[in-house]
Structure formats: C-alpha cells, structure tokens
Computed example of a mutant assay.
Amino acid sequence: MARYLLLLQHLHHQRQRVPRVFRDRQNPLDYTDDDNLVKNYRLDRHLILDLCAEIGQGLERPTRRSQSLQVSLQILIALRYYATGSFQSVIADAHGVKINSVSRSIHYVSRELSLRLSRYVNFPDGRTQQLDDIKDGFHNIAGFPNVLGAVDGTFVPIIAQTEDEHLYVTRKGFHAINMQGICDSQNIFLNVVVCWPGSSHDAFVSNNSETTMLLEENDYSDSWLLGDSAYPLKRYLLTPVLNPTTQGQIRYNIAHKRTRCIIERTFGLWKVRFRCLHKSGGYLMYSPKNVFTSLNQLLFFIIFALGEAFRFPTAMATMMMKMMMMAMKTMMMIMKMTQTRRGTKLMVDKCVTN
C-alpha cells in the first residue's frame, strides 16, 4: 500500500512535457484594406510603414527563433491599444498572440517613441522663421498679433493609485494626470508638460514648467502666449478681461477667445483619435510613470504621422462630417418644432383674446 501511494505521488509530481503550440499569427497589413486600417489603428498604411522604418531597429529581436513578433505586428498591437483603450486580452485574441506579447509590445513601442519625441515637439527659439510662421498663423484666425502659442491643461483619466491617491483626484471628482500643452495655429503641439497629478492647478503647472523659465530668461519681446482665466496675467501670457466694460475690451475678449480655443480643439482631436486617453475608452490602468511615457509617445504620433497639420485621414474625416450633418439636421428639426409650437401658442392666444 505504501509503495502504491509513493508511486501515485511520484506520478503526480512528475513534470510532464507540454507540447509547444504556435498560434496562427496574421499581420493585419497583409489583408486589411486602408479604410479599416484607419478605423482600427488610426493611421493609414503609408504612415504605419513609415513608423516601422522610424523605430523598427529598436524593436527587432536578436534571436534565432523563427516565431519572434514582426516589427509591424508589434506596432499594430500598440496602435490598437492606443486607438481603443481596450483590455490587453481582447487585443491578444484579435492578433493571435498571448497577452504577455501584447504587454511587451506596448511597452517597447512606447519606449521607442518617447525617445524620439524631442525631435518633433520643439518650442521656437528667438527670432526664427518658425516663430514668424506661428505668429502669422494665429493672426489669420482673428487678427490677434504676435501670438507664440495657445496654452491650456487637460485631464487624462487613470485608475486610483495605491500611493498618494488623493493627489490624483481632480476637481471633477475622478483620478487623472494634469497635462499642459502649447500648440500653434495648425493644432501642432510645441511643448507638453506631463508630470503633475490631477489635483495640480493649471497655474501651478505653468509656473513650474521649462517654457515659463525660457520665456522669463530670454527675449521674446512683443510676443506672448494666450491662456484662459485660470492663468496669471504676465508680460508673456495674456488672459481675458474678466469684466469687460468698453468696446475695446469686448473686442479683445472675442479675438482672444477665437484664437485661444485652438488648444481645446487640439486636445479634443487628440483624444478622439486615441481613445485610451478619453473616459469613453476607459481609464489608463497603469502607474503614473507609465502613463507619462504613453502620453509622450502619443504626442509623437501627432507630430510624426500628421506632418505639418493636424488633419484626419479620409475615413475619419468622412465619419466626422456625417456626425456634423446629423447634428445639424437634429438642430434644424428642433428649431422647426420650436417655431411650430410658438405659432400654435400665438394662434391660441389670439383666439382667446377675440
């Protein structure tokens, strides 16, 4: 009996070799058309191939195995996560890989993109042609002269942290990172600050940024940023007049609002393209350090992929136009219903009066 139990115990603890199973990996670039590539990955085929050439050397693995992930597949896995903010298990099933491979792909792609961010996000120095072009672009919007850029902050939602959790609670009641951005008239980021929790005030983030130090130490005479009322008024930062009383102050506020709102539009376009940054796509389930890396690499996409102007690809532009047309039709129907009700009320009032 004792021998029998020992034999069963030996068989139970004996490690059995599990045969290795290779899953069927299909590269979406081989069978997905351009419209679906834009829909699922937010970039078209040409831009994805350019991205592979840009960061491919850092993603190649020195291995003799034949089953390592291709560079293009790693980039597509990361793009799918940035575009949807979905769970990594869902992305693994969609691409025929394991969840560990998805996690590593997102990490390595984010790292490579973050290392290249400084090449594409640069605040203009002194009197250069880039600075003159930025000023001309802002002046063409509402006639506001000598504008260096529009500055504002936005919240990127994250899950509650185990350390210093209260610091990440925003005034709106959710956990987030407070990111500051400065953009030009073409919706291109010139500077970003991604290192402060959600409870930080916009003015505090601005005062502790490198851009503020640059503007204070260097000569940017007759040039300024445009910010909302959350920022302090400085010689290089203009804010709206809180209680305008003269026609000049009213015109100033109108021109200031039309020019400054470009930064809010830029944040909106950024979050529409990469849903992992928006609450509709779910909260970023990472530590703040990893969130900072993700934000930096998504900014790289805006500059690298969109070139000189922030514009949607054809498929997304068509979708946005359809949404705008539907909204306009809805507004027209509401206006017609309101006019009909007003007309009916007037007729009833006349009958009652007569």
Rank of each mutant, 00 (worst) to 15 (best):
V291C: 07
L51E: 06
R311K: 12
I55M: 08
F204S: 10
L238R: 12
R17H: 13
T330I: 10
Y168R: 05
M332D: 08
A78R: 06
M323D: 11
G96V: 04
M326A: 10
T353K: 15
M319N: 09
K135W: 02
G307I: 00
Y220F: 15
I263M: 14
L226D: 03
L298T: 07
L117I: 03
N27H: 05
A92C: 02
I159T: 14
W270G: 03
D44P: 02
W270V: 00
M1S: 13
S209R: 12
K322A: 13
T170Y: 01
P28L: 07
R235P: 01
L225A: 11
G282T: 04
I182K: 09
K257G: 02
P197I: 02
D44A: 02
K345G: 12
A142F: 04
L284M: 09
M285K: 14
G137M: 00
G307D: 00
G282Q: 04
G85C: 02
Y108Q: 14
E54S: 10
R171A: 05
T353G: 00
R251T: 08
L115M: 06
R235Y: 04
A327L: 06
Q247T: 13
I91T: 06
V151D: 02
F87I: 03
D93W: 07
G153K: 03
M324A: 14
G281N: 11
N191W: 03
H278G: 04
T246N: 09
M321A: 14
E165F: 06
R275K: 15
L37E: 04
M321D: 15
D136I: 07
R65P: 09
L49N: 13
I75V: 11
V205P: 00
T84K: 10
V205L: 07
T154C: 15
R25Y: 02
N243D: 15
L233P: 10
Q57V: 05
H13K: 11
R275H: 01
C351V: 12
T330G: 09
Q9K: 12
W270D: 03
H13V: 15
R61W: 09
G343T: 07
D222Q: 06
N140H: 07
K350G: 00
M320Y: 03
T63A: 07
R23F: 15
F310H: 03
D93L: 10
G248I: 04
N146P: 00
A53W: 05
G281W: 08
R25W: 05
K279P: 01
V151K: 02
F144W: 00
P232T: 01
L69C: 08
R64T: 13
Q180P: 11
L43Y: 10
I254S: 07
R127W: 05
E163C: 10
P145W: 06
V193I: 13
Q180Y: 03
T293Y: 01
S89P: 08
G96K: 10
M213C: 13
D184V: 00
R258H: 10
C351A: 13
N187Y: 00
Q74G: 14
H10G: 13
L51I: 11
T314D: 11
V205M: 01
M335T: 13
V194C: 14
H166P: 01
I303V: 08
V21Q: 06
D202H: 06
W196G: 01
N218V: 05
N27K: 09
A309G: 00
R273M: 04
N36E: 14
H175S: 11
